[in-house]
Design a protein around this nucleic acid. Structure first.
Length: 314
DNA sequence: CGACTTTGACCCGCGC
DNA sequence: GCGCGGGTCAAAGTCG
């Protein structure tokens, strides 16, 4: 199924066709202050140059249109894939109910295998094996499970970036899995009782399985707050109650973590195409829905041209 | 120095 | 009752 995912670099490189050399902006353009820039903008531009600039502007505009179309197609692809994913989930859940308790664990891992086929899986449930194991516990406790493929460099640690701040309080080697299980508590809010367990998959050590218990009673950390936790760099919790209702289980929250965390790290470390897909979808949505995007782009580009005119004058 | 991680000990539930 | 295994605690160590 991997092949069905669009492997898209999420960086928006709008410079598809680099401008001719004469339009390249020297480094010095980005140095110094721009005070009095407006005055300088009223430059004497030769009529011939105006025509060239207009041509460039038109070209950029058409590129922008193409990009918008690409994003639209991407959104459609995502919708289709999302539908397939939800179908798959519903099939699995229906078959799961027919299994006995003893078989359930096995089916869970098989289920996981199917899911991991497309590299990332997010599963949320309020009535799962956890509540079967611990019938005395409050069955209302929401439990969600996230499978995340990690890069080789991440295999040493069990830190799973999800946007929230976690404090590790224990680690244990369990019987059914040679790799240790790490226990985390949400440390962002003292009153937040959310816990998470992170363990490598016994079948695929490159896959981290995080099990979240409970719901955060606080909003997800914002950017500045995230930057306050450099050591763990942890990151998004799956379940902000206010957001839980929307979209495929947990996906939006997961996505939010990726976005709100240090972008470089997240994109590198979270390799699950599903997550990237969500990222792309969000980007596409925000761009296509924003009527000012084109205008802003054009303004930025024309600003660059004006800059260029100024530079040539110097 | 404070926040966080590590890790061995302890607690508790469950099955036999 | 006993042993096992999962979960938690807390002191010591580490790091920025």
């Amino acid at each position: 199924m991997d092949s069905s995912w669009v492997d898209l670099d999420t960086r928006l490189d709008l410079n598809l066709n680099p401008l001719p050399h004469r339009f390249e902006v020297p480094k010095r353009e980005f140095q110094g202050d721009f005070a009095g820039f407006e005055e300088k903008v009223s430059v004497k531009v030769k009529p011939r140059e105006i025509g060239v600039l207009e041509d460039e502007l038109n070209r950029i505009s058409s590129e922008n249109k193409k990009l918008t179309e690409m994003l639209t197609v991407l959104c459609e692809n995502y919708s289709i894939l999302e539908k397939q994913y939800m179908d798959l989930l519903s099939k699995n859940s229906s078959s799961e109910t027919e299994l006995t308790a003893s078989k359930k664990r096995k089916s869970d891992s098989e289920d996981y295998r199917k899911m991991i086929g497309f590299n990332g899986h997010i599963e949320c449930s309020s009535s799962d094996e956890e509540s079967c194991k611990k019938p005395k516990e409050n069955t209302k406790t929401k439990v969600s499970r996230i499978y995340m493929r990690t890069s080789a460099s991440d295999t040493a640690s069990l830190i799973m970036k999800d946007g929230y701040q976690w404090r590790k309080y224990g680690q244990k080697v369990t019987r059914d899995n040679p790799s240790p299980r790490a226990y985390f508590k949400c440390s962002f809010a003292p009153s937040c009782a959310v816990k998470k367990k992170v363990q490598r998959s016994a079948e695929d050590p490159s896959v981290l399985v995080a099990t979240y218990e409970g719901e955060h009673n606080h909003p997800p950390p914002t950017k500045p707050e995230l930057s306050l936790s450099p050591s763990q760099g942890s990151t998004v919790g799956p379940v902000s109650p206010a957001r839980r209702s929307q979209g495929p289980a947990g996906t939006l929250d997961m996505f939010q973590g990726i976005v709100s965390d240090d972008a470089k790290k997240s994109v590198q470390e979270v390799e699950a195409p599903a997550i990237r897909q969500i990222l792309v979808q969000q980007m596409a949505a925000s761009l296509t829905k924003d009527p000012t995007f084109t205008a802003a782009l054009a303004a930025a580009i024309s600003g660059r041209f004006v800059d260029q005119g100024r530079t040539e004058k110097w």
